[in-house]
Amino acid sequence: MNAPVANKLVLRRSYFEASARARVAAVLDAGSFREFLPPEASEPSPHLAVLDIPGAFDDGVIVGSATLGGRPVLVIAQEGQFMGGAVGEIHGAKIVGLLRRAVQEKPAAVIFMADSGGVRLHEANAGLIAISEVMRAVLDTRAAGVPVIALVGGSCGAFGGMGIVSRLCSAIVMSEEGRLALSGPEVIETVAGVEEFDSKDRALVWRVTGGKHRYLTGDCAELVEDDAASFRDGAIALLAGWQEPVPASSTLRAEQTRLTERRQRFAGLRDGLEVWQALGVAEPRQIPLMDRDSLVALKKGLPA
């Protein structure tokens, strides 16, 4: 390996492959993070212990305070490598506590690094209730005027209840590698058959749930490279002029219209390629090959 290649590898730190702790260190201002309930002050989930499973001290989520571009933020980072980032009782309660703290403290934002398949089945009821509590807490936080920015680019994406939570946030920053949906392709394949959704067809999975598709259809606000620094820049850029809207019927009416029209317009389509064509993309097959900047430019040029 020659030196220039090695330098390039050093410069780019894959967000997808990084651990939650590495993401926290790389996305937020260096050295600014202070963890709440750090591992040395925590115990692994007893619900996993009774099932004979070694837990993690942080139960798969890190919460704390930091600064981002000099502004105070509260931070949530799920660890996708631990039980698929899935939400159990302690994991969920840490997130709810962080969001309730945000209502009191009113930081500039909550940065929510989602990386989760949804409910942790080993604690299914506790996980489902916790996600419901997170949903209410995200909306309480936003209603208090604090934007909640979701970053979606981890190996587990944001699925199940965490897919819903992500869309409840003020905005989503996503990488091409990120995935955002409700049911995982494996679940749909198991229930409805491989003809309905071939979960091993990675290209198809990304055309249906991946960052580029979600960006083109307006379900994520920012598309960034798979790089912790790009997520950082994307979040800073989003927050720069952000004014968190007061919850209002008019806002939700507008979203209702957008979603209803989209539903009618794309009825019966089953592949991102078809949606992109319908959006006016001249060569939809080129989309998976395009780099981030070209795709952003292409989206700007699409008919409204």
């Binding site: 949906a181 049911s183 749909i188 959704f197 259809t217 989209r262």
Partner: peptide, 10 residues
């Protein structure tokens, strides 16, 4: 549970 539903961000 369907691909078409997920395609439009269920």
């Amino acid at each position: 549970l369907s691909r078409a539903e997920e395609l439009l961000c269920l």
